[in-house]
Design a protein around this nucleic acid. Structure first.
Ligand SMILES: [Zn+2]
Ligand SMILES: [Zn+2]
Ligand SMILES: [Zn+2]
Ligand SMILES: [Zn+2]
Lengths: 137, 137
DNA sequence: TAATTAACGCAACTAAGCTGCAAATATAAA
DNA sequence: TTTATATTTGCAGCTTAGTTGCGTTAATTA
């Protein structure tokens, strides 16, 4: 399913000019985006509240997913096209660069199998790696 | 080396009444603590700034380490006694409970070996698991 | 085109965490 | 023990990411 089709279908999202611009920002980037970056790129015509709400909506729809950020800010990356509101689980690692503060989704890593522990129920496993990214190495 | 001795030795930390109380809170708990919890337990005589600064100092000394929190709040847990200012790396997973919002250090999990990827340098690997803890299962 | 409903923009708010400074307390020196 | 020095604490006020409410605007539907 194409991303614009998902935008239309899921939750009856309306295809507004702002949302198209926002989606393009993600598609034109090879990494995740912070609100600050989006604010800068999208121009100050659009309010930060609009950005926060759109990100929220996009996340619920399975268009984007939140990724960890070195400074604990809201940060999002595109999902693969298989995600949707009810199935929205990723099996890739996230890499945080200590130097450029970027976060990257890394599909190349074999996601570790974690064996159960008595007394716990595991629902989601996240692997976060810190270090230096190709640009900063 | 005992924990209170570490408090004295490392970084020349002064053994104040507040710090002893704070350290005891950690020692008397089997999980990690938030600032909110500390505020409640320690009484309102002590200012939140004092708490934040003490936590910061404790972390630098290798007494405690920050753990992930479900709501992105500051949350800390005791280190094992081997930690110190210059060697402060943990090889255990962190478990976040979706129901009681607690975070637990889990030593029982075999920490996965992640193989290198060309272009990256990995310095630290974190494993974060979500689900329900024994109390909430 | 008109009616309906969702999205947007603005202003004001919330709350975690930080900074600066003066007063209090712990340690070291005399 | 007293004095001097350095660190910690408490207070007040600040910063800023993210949220809430509400009236206006724009997209979809009939
Ligand atoms: Zn980098
Ligand atoms: Zn990702
Ligand atoms: Zn629980
Ligand atoms: Zn831990």
């Amino acid at each position: 399913m194409s991303i614009s089709k998902k935008l239309l279908n899921n939750y009856g999202l309306r295809n507004t000019a702002f949302r198209k611009k926002l989606l393009q920002l993600f598609q034109n980037s090879d990494s995740s985006l912070t609100v600050e970056y989006i604010k800068d790129k999208i121009g100050r015509n659009n309010d930060k509240v609009t950005i926060y709400r759109a990100l929220n909506t996009f996340e619920k729809s399975g268009l984007i997913h939140q990724v960890p950020d070195r400074n604990n800010l809201s940060r999002y990356a595109l999902c693969n096209v298989e995600c949707n509101p009810s199935n929205h689980i990723h099996h890739h690692a996230h890499f945080i660069c200590d130097y450029c503060d970027n976060t990257l989704c890394i599909e190349e890593i074999d996601f570790p199998k974690i064996k159960k522990i008595k007394g716990f129920k595991f629902k989601k496993i996240e692997l976060i790696i810190q270090g230096s990214c190709p640009k900063c190495l």
